[in-house]
Each structure stands twice: as C-alpha cells, then as structure tokens.
Design a protein around this nucleic acid. Sequence first.
DNA 1: ATAATTTGGTTTATAAAATAAACTTCTTTA
DNA 2: TAAAGAAGTTTATTTTATAAACCAAATTAT
Lengths: 96, 96
Amino acid sequence: MFQPLDPLLHSELRLAIVSLLISVEEAEFPYIKEQTGATAGNLSVQLDKLSTAGYIDVEKTFKGKKPCTLCRMTDKGREAFEAYVEALKSYLVVKN
Amino acid sequence: MFQPLDPLLHSELRLAIVSLLISVEEAEFPYIKEQTGATAGNLSVQLDKLSTAGYIDVEKTFKGKKPCTLCRMTDKGREAFEAYVEALKSYLVVKN
DNA sequence: ATAATTTGGTTTATAAAATAAACTTCTTTA
DNA sequence: TAAAGAAGTTTATTTTATAAACCAAATTAT
C-alpha cells in the first residue's frame, strides 16, 4: 500500500540538499547554505549524514587560501533519491 | 527556491493517514491501523496531532457495543495536503 | 603591526518528534 | 467466571532536527 520512505531523504533539509545537488553536479558549502537557508551547523550535520550514508561525496579542498567544501551526489545517492520519489508517489496518488 | 514543508504532514505515518483519508471520505481506527501498518499507540498519537491541528475530525461512536473511532478529513486538512504536495514539488522538479 | 571582523566551517547542547511498550476498559468466548 | 481479545490511550524511550557555541585561518581596519 504505502512504500516506506527512506528516513535519510525524508527530511526537509537533507531533501533540499539532495534536490540541489542532483541538478548541479557539484556545489560548495556556502552556496548550499544560501540556497537552502540552513544554518552552517545544521548543514554541516546533515551533509555528514548524507556522506556517511554514501549518498554524497564531500571533498575538502582549498580555493586559494580559503578552505572549500565541495559536495556532489554519488550514484548511490541518485538511486536513493529516485527510489524515494517513487515511494512518495504511493502517498500522493489516488489508489485503486 | 524551496518551499517549507508543513511538519505536520511531512511525517511518514501522518502522511499515510492523510493520504488514506483523502481518498476515502471516512475510515475507522482499525482500518487505518491495518492499511498503514502502524502500531495502535503510534496511530493514536498521530491521529491526535492531526485532530488538534484541525486537519481531521475524530468521532468516537459505537458499533454495537464496541467503541468505534471514525476519522475524516476536514477542509483545512485537504487544503493543507494540497499545499504540502505543491511545496514538495519544489524539491522534486528540476529548477531553472 | 596588531586588533577586530569575516569566512568557513565543526562540535556540542537542547528541543522536538517518532515510536513502541505498558496499561486500561469493555466484550466476547472457553 | 476466568481467560482472551478488541479498541484504544498514556507514558517512557529513542531518535532526530536544529541552533548555539566554538575554533582556526584569513582579511580588513586602525
């Protein structure tokens, strides 16, 4: 009847992060922060969770002298997102 | 960019409850329990939250001698659900 | 030169949520 | 009439989300 919703993706901020990364190939921490409106702390925690789950890769580089955290989706993450969207449909569409 | 997601609806069980009630006009506690796979305790709590928010009406009647809890969506609940679905789209569709 | 501010985050503490276990009341069945 | 079942509710626990506090390096102002 209702397909279970991946708890890692069924979270407003993490869903926003993934939604952003899906369409952008890679993004920097400050950009994600700005686009999602999250606080740095919250964002840091949620990126960690996504990274630990293997849904995103987080690369710590430098941009000149400043640290720069780059994030991008993994294939696993993309698959999880697709599955999540499929599962969501079981809640949004009229059943028969 | 991303529209906020009503926290009352952005919950797996409450979303399942509402999704069910939307398409059914009214439903009894045990039926909702069976369809959602929730435990009675969890279901009771979540129905309370939806009811307190005015998203559903909960009517306690009797079916013969047995208590019978009937649930149905309110207009407010239906509107909230529609708005939630609209908001969700901002996370699922490619932005420009 | 050095003090203050900004940037780019992380860690930790708190508040809120989800969930199940335990319990209650009434009814039916053995 | 004792035991089991149905229909929920209440309470306790675990998990989660979130922000506040913190840290280090770099930049800007004095």
